[in-house]
Design a protein around this nucleic acid. Structure first.
Lengths: 194, 194
DNA sequence: AACCTTATGTAGCGACTGCTACAAGAGTCA
DNA sequence: TGACTCTTGTAGCAGTCGCTACATAAGGTT
């Protein structure tokens, strides 16, 4: 029983986390087999062996990323809801400013672009991630909200617009837009008289 | 004076429209010199000659696309404003459903993704296009709007979120969100009693 | 032991990438 | 006319792309 090296016996399941880490850092569009393989401690030869071809690899990888995104959201879901829609929005935006989420956003826009272009695998992944986030948002809505389902979708739309404007250098535009929204009006109604 | 062929004497200015047409159809990320050159009736050799290198070509091309986007918006601006924010939003969304705008959107998400990744030239182009669209939207706002500047930015945020959700297959999510927004409330207020 | 499936390494193929060296035609100015 | 600049074509280089042919080693089955 020497047990010197203990081969890890790689498979799709062991490869995907390493591949995902690589695309999180270096992007999805420019990813090619050899760098991906190196990041996963293998050869391009073996990636093709396990996934069949690159398109399937990307599809599987997007599915995996969507899945870990879901679990990340569930992990971030505390039992406490927000008290107002305003606070709910603020909480999401604060979370989106964390470094890991920032890194996710860079990948996210690549996924959106791929979905828009119709590249195989991109649209289902994007759809799943949005669906999960809407669900999550719905659970975050204030308990006394008159329309949690519609409100969550409204907030989702507004927040995604805000995030997009932020990534293209128009965070100020989005902020001024949010201040002019009914979210601010809600707060103004609960605050001192205008 | 035979004047048989009449060489077009190409330059950046004559090339850019042809290059832009090509990327509108085939995308920006996967664009390589030889197909671009073929679309413009030249050789990769000449593209490098005129633009110096590919990065500069892409930068110039993005600038050109942002410029023609501006003029397209100005051309689409009729003298009549919308009567309500609701109508304003509906008008923009209707315009965004036209085929040419659809094609533009596919390119747009690539630009957003490039801006998020920090690829040179992408962020300034995205910034310029958004800035132009906010200006345009501000001019489209109802004449009696209490806060056209903030309202335009609010609508912008909401509309961009709507467009994004639409491209990833969540048009329904966005629609339900818009129905739950204060835009619908405005309409409800002006309509029959709830 | 013979065999057969699974997993992996080595080497390379043809296509494509951005880019360049070299040469040559066209026009301009001395 | 000769020199010089601007523009263009031809050919190719070194590198990367996804993918494959071939060989080999290991482990399980008969």
């Amino acid at each position: 029983m020497s047990e010197t090296a203990l081969k890890p016996k790689m498979s799709k399941e062991t490869l995907l986390p390493l591949l995902a880490a690589h695309v999180m850092e270096h992007g999805l569009g420019g990813a090619s087999l050899r760098p991906l393989a190196k990041a996963a401690g293998t050869s391009d030869r073996m990636l093709i062996y396990h996934f069949g071809n690159k398109e399937q690899l990307i599809t599987d990888l997007l599915g995996y990323i969507a899945a870990i995104y879901s679990t990340a959201l569930e992990a971030a879901l505390g039992p406490e809801r927000a008290a107002t829609r305003q606070e709910c929005a603020a909480r999401i935006l604060a979370q989106s400013r964390e470094p890991m989420m920032q890194q996710f956003m860079v990948l996210w826009w690549e996924i959106v672009a791929g979905a828009a272009r119709g590249i195989p695998g991109y649209k289902p992944a994007a759809e799943a991630m949005i669906a999960k986030q809407v669900d999550w948002l719905e659970q975050q809505m204030p308990e006394d909200d008159p329309d949690p389902k519609g409100g969550a979708r409204y907030l989702m739309t507004l927040l995604e617009g805000t995030l997009m404007l932020g990534t293209v250098g128009h965070a100020r535009t989005a902020r001024e837009g949010l201040l002019a929204s009914d979210l601010a009006r809600e707060v103004a109604g609960k605050g001192p008289a205008t």
